[in-house]
Structures are given as structure tokens and as C-alpha cells.
Design a protein around this nucleic acid. Sequence first.
DNA 1: GCCGTTTTCGGCCCGACTGTTTTCAGTCG
Length: 571
Amino acid sequence: MARANEAVAALLQEYADLMSITGGDAFKVRVYEKAARSVDTHPADVGTLDVKGLQQVPNVGKSIAEKIVEYLAHGRIAAMDTLRAKIPPGVRELTAVPGLGPKKAMALYEELGIANVDELEEAIGEGRLAGLRGFGAKTVENLRHGIELSRSSGGRSLIHDAMMIAEEAVGLVGAVTGCLRCCHAGSLRRLRETIGDIDILAAAVEPGPLMAAFAGWDRVREVIVRGEKKTSVRLVDGPQVDLRVVPPESWGAALQYFTGSKEHNVRIREIAVRKGLRLSEYGLFRVDDDSLIVSETEEEVYERLGLAWVPPTLREDRGEVDAARAGELPELIGVEDIRGDLHTHTNLTDGVSTLEEMVAAARARGLRYYAVTDHAKDLPMQRMTDAKMLAQRDRLRGLPAGRPTLLHGTELNIDPDGGVDWDADFLAGFDVCVASVHSHFNQSPDELTRRLVRACENPYVNIIGHPTTRQIGRRAPIEPDWDAVFAAAARTGTAMEINSHPDRLDLPDHLILRAKRHGVRFAVDTDAHAATHLAHLRYGVGLAQRGWLTADDVINTWSLTKLRAFVRAKR
DNA sequence: GCCGTTTTCGGCCCGACTGTTTTCAGTCG
């Protein structure tokens, strides 16, 4: 059974949105938003909790707890129905148009009866917004443009695409005379799986030349805002990039501020307020006399608030603030902890680089061990045979000894019943086996659960590859009973993969957190199909960090001896 | 509506930019 948390969180968020549109108390709106996020990230299934249990969830008090119970029992909330009756659902969708918030959406509905984006587009076309208070010619043109934008792009960028753009922008702005520091911030620095806007932060005494260079970048399609401290542009290939320039002495406070997340920053500022302080992108100030306390480094800002420095990948208001206050932040895994890659391909199947090229790339990256895991024989497209696999093993064993130590593995295909390509005798010849789902994605949750549990129970399966099979923006994740799958993985000594490929990033962070609670081990792999893909490791490690993992949680940070013992223990 | 190192009531994060209602509301991050 899927947890009720997602549905309840969506409902609370909708309640907050409707309240905001109808002009409800802004503080109340915020509470519902906070409660929605708390429920979404709460470890326990809220569907199993009573009113008292629900009140243990942060930001859920008596009133919201009762609404959740009402929803769980009857599938609806009376107060919600009342609000929904006031506002057609399309009005809420209006606020997704850039430049159109709750106030203007409500005005459009009340004054002109506009109840969805299509009607807004029509009204603009007919000039019916003219004369409406707050809707001058420029606003109307911005709305028309906003509709166009939300229809065309709308989507978020894959992390690797955003990173390439950010690195180019940092190179451009950083090279301007007078630029003292420049780096990317925002969700990209937090290594979220997809990126909306790309944030670039720079330090300079005179921002003008930096802004000019940025606005003149040859990839810019349009300049959205252009000010002294902030310039936003949209690139020809879609994404929006924001440049903020701050005085050099504000660097730490600014980096903290522009890294976000918004929710993390709200928590941090609330702590500041309780201490009689005010935190902005310019520094931490005393409220009474407006004097500056600290601003030069992030560490100082956190420290002055009584917190340990929080790694960017944890800044999502998922408990990291309390952990930082208690000195209980995890020692997060880093790229340098990874000693080997356990899921890679060559041109023997669908990779593009040769065995020798892949091994050379692994050596260049300083890996201690490296597993070649081409596809097994049950995927007909890959034309694998027993003979070809054994020949690859001979070729691999024949390569000169040295680092990395080469392991011969395979990526097995988990069939619809949970079986894999070869029998025990053949499987015993491999050093390590990944097993993954590549088809029959729309089995029922029960079938998928049995399938994955059976794969975990196979003594030769060491790692479940890209467990949800999602492809970001293209294929939805499968939805077995993850708690049952993770329990089986923990019980059998089977690792869950954290696949570093930018369009997979699988497991996603919320499932990593869930799996860890079952005591599951993980393998951060690249699933490289070309030598250049080994560099994607940083995204997988970022994802592992977002799941609060330490090096010890991840089997390919272990020594080869310990890794071999992990494999042997299961056989 | 929630919360508490200013605790059971009185607060609730901060600033940039735009457009328009020309002194500020709305939106965004």
C-alpha cells in the first residue's frame, strides 16, 4: 500500500493555496503549507495515525490533525469543500503562470469571471483586461508572455544540463575585471535532481560590468529583469539564469541565502528572530541597533546562530536544523570516499567505449576497484551469449594487473516473476551481480513487490540496479510496496543502487531515507555507458548526501576485502 | 493555526524588482 502522506500533503497544500487566493489570513496559509511539507517528509505513514499521533508531526496541531483524520475516514474535508465551492479549480492553476499570484488571480476571477488559463488567454486576446485595476498594459503583456512560457518550456532542467550552463556562466562572469568571487548557488548547489532556475552569485564592489557581461552573454534570449543587484535572463534553450552581485564582505551570508532552500532559510531566520537578530543576504544583524555581527562566511553565520555548518545537500528543512543545533548532523559521504564503481558497461553491449577505454578512465579517476557489468543474455537487444560473456572475462583477466582491481560482473535482467538470466552455476563465476527491471513496468504493486523481493532473495544478486526504473521527465517510477522491498534487501544483504546517471538518479532521495531506516546498504554507481559518464558520480554522491548517507552506508566506499566479504556472505 | 531559551498569548523571514494605485502592492525567490 502506498503511504497516505503524499495525498494528505497535496490536500493541505491545496487548502493553503485556496485560502491564499480567497484572501485568508497569511499566517494561517503558511501554517498549512508548513504542515503539508512536514506530512510529506514524515517517516511514519500518516494513514496509520490517530489525532494524537498526528499531533506529533511538526506543524500539525489539533485542528489540522482532525482534518487529516476526517479525510482518512471519509475521503473529504468539509472545510475544504466549502473553499472549493468558492473557487473553481482553474483559478488555482492561474497562479502557476509567471507573474500571476493569488491576488491577481482572484481579481481576474471576481471582476471578469476568468476561471482558467485558457479563459485568461482569450480575455487578453479580446482586450478585456483593459481598465481593470492593477492590470496596466505592461502587466497584461507580461501575463500573455507568461502563459506562452508556461506552455512551451515549463519543465525543469536535468541536473547535468544545468551544471554545464552554470559552469559556463561562472566562467563568463568570473572573468570580468572586478569580480572577486563567483559560483553557482540555489538548487544546483543543493544538487536537487532537477533544476528550475539556475542561480549564480558573484562578489564585486562595482556590479555594473558583471551585469553587463552577463546580460550580453550570447546564449541569452531575453533579459527578464535588470537591476543594480540582480539580473535575470532567459537562455535560448529555455532555462532562466539569475545573477546576484553582492559586496565582498557579504559573501558568506549571501551564499547561505541564495543556496536555500527557501524552507531551510525560513527556519534559520526564525532562529535568528528568537535571538533578537535579523538575517539577510547582507549578513546577520542585531535588531535593536542594526549592527552587523557576521557575514563573511557561511560557517560564521551558522555558528553565531548556535548551529553547526549544514552541508548544502541537507538544506531542505527535513530535520537538518534540529540536527545542526544538537550537533547530530551525519558525516556525509563524499566523492573522495568512493573506492570503486560497481555498475558500468562497455561496447560489448550498449556502451560506446571499449573495455580498455573504460578501465583507463577508471584508473584516471583514481578508483581502487572497478566492475564491468555488461547486460546479460535475457535482453535480446543486447545480443549477449554465454560465450561472449566468458570471452570478456578472459580478456579482462588478461589486462595488466594494477589499479583499479578489475571485477567481472553483469547487469542481470529481473524477469516479470523475479527470476534472472542465468542459473546458479553460471552466476557463481561473477565477482558481483547487479540486477535490474527493464520491462513490464505496469505490473500491479503486488506483482512488482514479489518480483523485487524474489530478486533480493537470489544469493547471487548483490545490487538492485536503478530500483524505481524512472527516467526523469519521461518514465514514471514503478510503485511496489517499498517498505517490503527494503525489508527484504536488508534481510538478504542486497544493496540498493543509487544510480548517478542524470536522467535516472535512482533511488530518489525520499526513498533513500526510507530504505536507510530499514538498515539497507547502498551502492553509488554511474551505470556508465561511455568513459565520460564516470564523471556523473558527483550527482550520485550528491543524491546519497540528500538521503543523509554516510560512507559506511555505501558498499563501494568499503575496502575490496570488505566488499568481497559482503558478496560471499550472501552466497 | 501553530508554537514556546521573549512559553498559553502574541507573534509569525527578508529583500529586489516591476508596474502602477506616484507611495506601495504584488510577485518572486
